[in-house]
Design a protein around this nucleic acid. Structure first.
Lengths: 368, 368
DNA sequence: CCCTGAATTGGAAACGTTTCCAAAATGTCT
DNA sequence: AGACATTTTGGAAACGTTTCCAATTCAGGG
């Protein structure tokens, strides 16, 4: 009965040779006679020896490990990013150490510290506020090969990110195209995410450009289970809005639900556009209109970028901004009910109009 | 300009003392004069020194790292498991190394090998087939502290798992209670998951006990994007079924969609029960009837179990089987349309009956 | 001012690898 | 058989820590 796992020394002893020889045989580096090779292999087999990555890493100054920090896995977008990152890393023989910042800058910084101490070879992460992130500062100082995901490039770091502003402009354009004027922007932890802010800013700008009213910022501080109630309150407080752009699909779907609970019909009484393009948006009726993004490509790209730098390969180019998202039509966006537009139009028809065009557009999903 | 990160040796030199002293000061072990303590701290500050976890781990024989293997993060259940596991590990100062087996036993085994080589202190994992898993065998041989998640206990390993059989019996009971006789069990990668099989077996048994027909096994081999088409085909091939129990919520929702595309109404023409209790089930209309599970508790519990063993604490008991799931009523389950039951009942009412009890039961959701 | 016990200190071994280097063994050619 | 080239081998250093242990310093009591 062995207690500790066998080391290379045990193998050497068993095989009757030096540890250097064992190392060479097992790594295929240097030469060895057929005889000793055989003896070493036999010893390895007998002892069930496996190299310890620790000694190896200490010596080689490389852990074959890359860190990955995302705000949360509750958001399927990040789950996909991580999944893709893990997959890509694995393909190249790297492991992934995962940390969740939980939208907390303190945790974020701490995670970076720990990962650096663990001597990760590279880092792939989404920070909460890229502009003035202590975490990124530390990364810069320590020169850790790194790529951002879902954050705009900053300090010259490579980044695989959505062009949030342009995407938000698309949403504004869609609203405008359907005749909406009074819109709102719905966000969950607005101050905790620069992504949300960028979407808001792009949306506001574009609404202004289209001559629409300034969008209302509908902000929800924390999600404590009563999200639907909070949304219900918000919706009743702002009856005049005909369209809401949500900073993510989950929020949009929740808003959809809350609006329905209030007896409002989608999209006649309220149009909704989400962000991210999670598959759930295609399970509801009508389909959620949204900005579709591709988290898998982002996660994969970020890892490739880091690995390329690590392995001295040509670093892949970052994605062209206009390819980072795609407007996905769906039935949750339609013309506002003329009966209750913001006072300027004549009120004529009843809220029962069953807009066929929306049904139609809700067919457009294509299973990815 | 320092190139490599500073080591304890650099600090010692800068502070003008031995490395042992630096170690003692920084770790608060052993004594040190106020004078040297100060000098060491100053040197640390000046150099920006941080311990390397590598040397430390090599010496202490502990990496403060635990491995986590799940089939995939695409399933929100596992995303939540991982999230909770990560959180719990972090709480105790441990990092999480993540690996996805992608429902592949080969990858699973390989992941275990790599993690062991990386000298993880413990392991938390969901395997595809617990009974005869090479991965588990290896874990057993190497004596890695470990806990299963979502797999039934095996080889005496601790496990945080759903009582799949009993849960499936609940589903059968519900179907029976509503008068269903001809049911089916829908699974995605049936042979790749013992969880799916257990659910099936429990369902079959219970259906037999209730005097219902033997459930049809509706198996989908691989998910290649045309999932909805495949489901559509399956549904038209098996028109006689009035209720389908799906091995997870995602499948159930997809089936719901596919059935609707065929013009069938839920639940009048087809009742559906899912498994897992993902929140998406509450976003659709009617709500998905399902077996609700608590992946967070499972992930957290598994990590606690492993950590307890690692830290010599009393190991928490595993959850009582009957607390591992909860039947969640929803509008997707209702009495079958008598007009097309399997021939034994009289056909009386029209398919337009708008079952109020189901609507009611669909209200029962409580935001977690 | 010397002695004792306690506090402080640094050298060195150990953890498991890889790799440099020189030594030993083997082979080849006159 | 001797000289030399080549292959095979193992000792030892290095990677960055912790910790044992012996040596040094210090404080205070005689």
């Amino acid at each position: 009965m062995k207690q500790r796992p066998p080391t290379i020394k045990d193998v050497a002893e068993q095989a009757g040779c030096g540890i250097a020889t064992v190392s060479r045989v097992l790594n295929g580096s240097g030469s060895a006679s057929a005889d000793t090779r055989e003896k070493v292999l036999a010893a390895v087999d007998a002892l069930g020896f496996e190299f310890s990555a620790l000694g190896r890493s200490l010596q080689s100054n490389s852990t074959k490990t890359i860190g990955c920090i995302v705000p949360s896995l509750a958001n399927p977008i990040f789950a996909e990013v991580v999944q893709a990152a893990q997959h890509e890393a694995h393909r190249e023989g790297y492991q992934l150490i995962l940390a969740c910042s939980e939208y907390d800058e303190e945790l974020e910084l701490q995670a970076v510290r720990t990962l650096i101490a663990k001597k990760i070879d590279g880092l792939v992460l989404t920070v909460n506020n890229a502009e003035d992130s202590e975490a990124l500062a530390l990364i810069g100082k320590r020169q850790v090969p790194c790529s951002l995901v879902y954050n705009r490039s900053v300090h010259g770091l490579p980044s695989w990110a959505i062009d949030n502003r342009s995407a938000a402009r698309e949403a504004a354009r869609a609203f405008h195209g359907h005749g909406h004027v009074q819109t709102g922007f719905l966000a969950l932890r607005f101050n905790r995410s620069d992504r949300s802010r960028e979407r808001y800013e792009g949306f506001v700008e574009a609404c202004r450009d289209y001559g629409m009213a300034e969008p209302l910022l509908l902000e929800i501080e924390e999600q404590d289970g009563n999200l639907l109630d909070l949304l219900g309150t918000l919706l009743t407080e702002h009856k005049s809005l005909t369209g809401i752009f949500a900073s993510n699909d989950f929020l949009a779907l929740a808003a959809m639900k809350a609006a329905r609970a209030l007896g409002r019909r989608i999209p006649e009484n309220l149009s909704l556009i989400g962000f991210d393009g999670i598959s759930t948006g295609l399970m509801v009726d009508p389909h959620l209109t949204t900005i579709e993004t591709d988290p898998r490509t982002m996660g994969q790209g970020a890892v490739q970028t880091v690995l390329a730098r690590l392995l001295g390969r040509p670093v892949p180019g970052q994605p062209a901004p206009d390819t980072t998202f795609r407007f996905r039509p769906g039935g949750s966006l339609g013309p506002p009910d003329p009966g209750r537009t913001d006072g300027r139009e004549a009120a004529t028809s009843l809220p029962s109009s069953e807009q066929p065009p929306n049904r139609l557009s809700s067919r457009q999903e294509s299973p990815t």
